[in-house]
Design a binder for these strands. Structure first.
Lengths: 367, 367
DNA sequence: CCGGAGCTGTTAAACGTTTAACGGTAAAAC
DNA sequence: GTTTTACCGTTAAACGTTTAACAGCTCCGG
């Protein structure tokens, strides 16, 4: 296997020029006359020459790679993030190296370590906890980096892109309370993750203010099957709440799975607000009302910040905070008459009505 | 930004040894005395030294990277594949570069081209059509590669890992016919993709043999939203079939979305068999009966083949063909009495029964 | 006490690029 | 007709590793 690969030198010989000329043809850094350029291009094609990135990178110091670290490659939220980053990376001529920390701090450190070995132009990372990995903290100011999602804005001297988690909690909780729900359960993944805590805080603050009681928050972990078991178990020893607000897409699945197994009807017996917006959520007779994260925008902003830093922007770290919106569909039941003419902030009415155009711009759509 | 990074030389100076010794400490190729090793390790830590992969790769010719090319990073089937490959790659000390061809042949060629620029140890590719990209065909025998999913076994002189698509079609169709369905529609993505054609052929052969009629096959594309529109449109000008067999996970979503919008009940009005097995399919009151691809095994076999080739295995290309199974849940209605004691090949009974352990080993579970 | 053998360390030559510096030719300017 | 200028090529020196070749040392057998 593995015949020797063509090098600049071989192409140069075959085309009868110097290696510098060949290099210039490929990099376009200096102009090359058409006749020579044609010769070089033909020679390169004949040898099926391909610039060796290792050599190129070693000499030039420029990398054209970005590392992307996420906590879980099976979580659709992270993979859709990667998908969008890959598109923009391609557009700007970068390649993407992915790594998963599998929600493990040690693995996260070691994955980052190897990522750094690539001398990437930058790193986009979703930390697995809200303490930023030491190895990254050390690189702040030296290596362009953007921290996404699981991070407290301002907790680190790097650009961050997050959603307004507190507000997301508020929006969902307010909607549920307005609909007449009072016995509300928050299905969290892990309460030690900052954005999750914020969502809980946001929801709790609304419920406490409007109803004077504190909603239960339960931790279902970040595995849907395990979460379904935990929630089933929880259901067995608690009265059925009137509404459940799931704080992540995985806990949304966990809750739905558990309710399906127990044959509990949505929204007749219990109302549900899910998190994230995926096609499967609308592909059901009772389409899911859910908090939608602007994945496209998160990816776009993260990429733009990274590019700015790579280009040398030395401004203070900027914490981008994006807004979520409630996609109202059919999984929450109204228990009290509708207050006339009222419009809630961040709420978009949207059923499975075939006539509506509300289903545009879904994560699974390619634009 | 970007203070100069520590190099071997700097570490060597600080530790008072030669660069060869430092290299040996990191690569472990030659033994180094403990006292020196300690000194080197301390110096390296102090400078937070990290081997430069570009230089290392350039000199050694060894890469420790594999390229993974898929047609769509928003398709859960492909991302779960990537997730599993990443795990095994890490175990064997490889990094993963991902690229998406976005179902575009030209883009596929160019993505492969850049992937090759990395001089990877090997490539795992899911082609976007069944004609293997020229650039890959050229590398057959030189670069370790494994072709997965969208490829006809034997159509190329490289290892392939596919499922038995014909059989998958047969299993689903036979089940539907045994349940008494005769008006069956096949919801395909694109009929010009080989594995899809095979699924259609398998299902069609069974229906023709058992019922003497040919099921309709419609192309819904590889975007769920667009597919839903197409299927809605189809439903408007055709009588409702008694069963729909969706041939990909995306068409499964398309069909379910369209049916939900039209408020058509599953399985009362129409029975459904989906493709692939994801958590959301069981997270519904009418859990979806579906053909399950053994994603874990596909990824494992692909990785093992690749590793064997990297290790120098020069045996003839081996086409691995894995079997699918029908996960029987609640989305297909029985129209005729059950034939007593009959067991169908490849069929696993499985409801949403909370007592069952059948829900183990889901794609979203981490083991 | 000499000559391997076995360790452990160093020297130095690549690997395939990029790119600063330089050279040579021809057209433009004077 | 000479000098400038512009343009296009080439030469050669890195970049940070790996690794063959070599060298010094200790230990051991003869």
């Amino acid at each position: 296997m593995s015949r020797k690969r063509a090098t600049l030198k071989e192409v140069a010989e075959r085309a009868g020029v110097s290696i510098a000329t060949v290099s210039n043809v490929f990099s376009g850094r200096k102009p090359v006359n058409d006749d020579l350029r044609i010769k070089v291009e033909r020679a390169a094609k004949e040898l099926s020459y391909q610039v060796d990135r290792a050599a190129s990178q070693l000499k030039s110091g420029r990398a054209r790679v970005v590392g992307v670290l996420v906590p879980d490659l099976d979580d659709t939220f992270f993979t859709s993030l990667i998908s969008r980053i890959e598109v923009m990376a391609l557009k700007d001529g970068y390649d993407v190296i992915v790594a998963s920390s599998r929600d493990d701090r040690h693995l996260e450190e070691s994955r980052l370590q190897t990522l750094l070995g690539w001398r990437p132009s930058g790193i986009i990372a979703v930390p697995c906890s809200d303490t930023v990995p030491a190895i990254l903290a050390r690189e702040v100011g030296h290596l362009p980096m953007v921290l996404v999602d699981r991070v407290m804005p301002g907790s680190v001297a790097a650009d961050t892109v997050t959603i307004d988690n507190f507000e997301a909690g508020e929006i969902a909780a307010r909607y549920l309370v307005e609909m007449g729900h009072s016995d509300i359960v928050l299905a969290a993944s892990h309460l030690d993750i900052a954005p999750i805590r914020e969502r809980v805080r946001g929801a709790t603050s609304v419920v406490e203010r409007m109803l004077g009681r504190t909603p239960a928050a339960i931790g279902l972990g970040s595995n849907a099957e395990r979460g379904a078991e935990l929630f089933t178990h929880w259901l067995e020893r608690h009265p059925l709440p009137s509404a459940v607000f799931a704080l992540t897409n995985v806990t949304t699945l966990a809750v739905l799975t558990a309710l399906a197994r127990q044959r509990i009807d949505i929204p007749e017996q219990v109302s549900i607000i899910g998190f994230d917006d995926y096609t499967w959520m609308s592909a059901r007779k009772t389409a899911l009302t859910a908090i939608r994260q602007p994945v496209d925008e998160i990816a776009r902003v993260a990429w733009e910040r990274l590019q700015a830093r790579i280009a040398g922007d030395a401004a203070d770290p900027y914490p981008s905070i994006l807004n979520t919106s409630l996609q109202v569909r059919d999984s929450t039941r109204r228990l009290v008459p509708s207050p006339v003419g009222e419009r809630l902030k961040g709420v978009e009415e949207q059923g499975v009505d075939p006539a509506g155009d509300a289903v545009k711009d879904r994560p699974n759509s390619i634009h």
